[in-house]
Every structure is written in C-alpha cells, then in structure tokens.
C-alpha cells in the first residue's frame, strides 16, 4: 500500500463568495455571475486576457483552480505528473444552448467557432492545463450529483498505478445561472493533515 493521500488545499466558489481552505477569501454583493466572476478575476489579479474569451463554466473552473493551486506547493512535482479530474452535472449545456441559438434560424445562421469550442465539458480542464502547464492524466465525468466515492476510487487508482503525484480534483457545474465549484489538490505530501477520503471531501463540499 502506498502512502496516505492528503488534501493539500481546497476552494469553494458559490453564491458570490469564495472560500479557501474553509475560510472566506472573497465575497461580492453582486448576484450576477458574469459580474461576480469578473470582480473575482480583478481581486486575484490573474492578468490573463484569455479569461474573457472563456464561457462561464471555464471562468468558474479557472478561478476555482487558481486559488487552490496558489495555495498548494507543487514546485517539487513535475507538470506531467499532475492530473486533472473534474465532474459536473450539466456538462457544457449552458454554452450548448448558446450555440444552438446561432443555428435555430436559417435566415440568421451564424455558428460561432469561439462559442462551439466551449461546447465540451472537458474544455475547462484544458483551460486549467494551459494556464498551469499541467500535462498529467485528464478525466471529465458527467453525473447527477457530486460523487465523492467515484472521485476517490478513480483518483486513488491513478496514484496507485503510479501515473500521477498530484491531482486537481473538483466538481464544477454551471447551469442556467446556478453555479458551484469545489476543487481540491490531492497529493502525498502536505503540512496540513487532511486525509483524502470520502468523508472529508463531503465536509468540504457541504460547507456553507
């Protein structure tokens, strides 16, 4: 049996507020997601103009990942040993509806490549990978709810098979103005003693 897996850092983004390791890190009085996420971008000073080309799901994923990665010391880990495993409920449906809208009317038929490219759920993992140069294992699941057991089984397996040394895990969902991101980095070394197990993950997810 290999070493126990630990949660190095975690973040939660929901209801116009951002928690890092369980502590409130940023809140906004702005209820509208697009305005809130832009405020968050300015707050964390990402300096990443590509951010504004992303759809809402990717913006949510990138902000949630940014703060959790910033709070994890991954310097010792090679980029091709850092995996990304994400889950959500609505896949990319928010942007799917937008693309569908551009082709519903034959008289006004202008499908947009900049929209279409975001009609895949895993593009959020791609955006995070590009920003942080993570080249390890990739997986994107679509499920009825955050399945902490599946996440634990799948990610533990990746560690046990020796394919990764760290993994960004998360539930990142955006649907019809409802949004939620819970992301955490799992690794083998951490100053914090938070075990990566089903129970702890549920606690992180359920925090209000």
């Amino acid at each position: 049996m290999s070493k126990d897996l630990l949660i190095i850092a975690h973040s939660v983004v929901r209801s116009s507020s951002i928690l890092v390791n369980g502590e409130k890190d940023f809140t906004s009085s702005e209820q509208d997601f697009k305005t809130f996420i832009k405020e968050a971008y300015r707050n964390y000073d990402l300096k990443y103009p590509k951010f504004f080309k992303m759809d809402s799901l990717c913006k949510l994923a990138v902000i949630g990942a940014e703060i959790v990665i910033e709070n994890s010391d991954l310097a010792e880990i090679s980029n091709d040993r850092i995996g990304i495993v994400l889950m959500n409920r609505a896949s990319s449906l928010e942007t799917d509806r937008e693309h569908q809208h551009t082709i519903d009317d034959r008289e006004n038929y202008f499908p947009s490549p900049a929209t279409f490219v975001y009609t895949l759920a895993n593009i959020m993992a791609g955006e995070i990978a590009i920003r942080h140069e993570f080249q390890g294992e990739n997986m994107c699941f679509v499920l009825s709810e955050f399945d902490v057991d599946l996440m634990h089984q799948y990610v533990s397996n990746l560690f046990e098979s020796g394919k990764i040394d760290a993994c960004l895990c998360g539930w990142v969902d955006f649907d019809d103005s409802n949004y939620e991101s819970v992301q955490y980095i799992v690794g083998e070394n951490s100053s914090k003693n938070i075990t990566f197990d089903v129970c702890t993950t549920k606690e992180i997810y359920n925090v209000k």
Binding site: A125, A129, Q135, E137, N138
Partner: peptide
C-alpha cells in the same frame, strides 16, 4: 494512459 498538451484548446 492520458495526458494534456497544455498548449491550445
């Protein structure tokens, strides 16, 4: 096995 190019979407 899987991977990401971390290059372009």
């Amino acid at each position: 096995g899987s991977s990401n190019d971390a290059n372009h979407i």
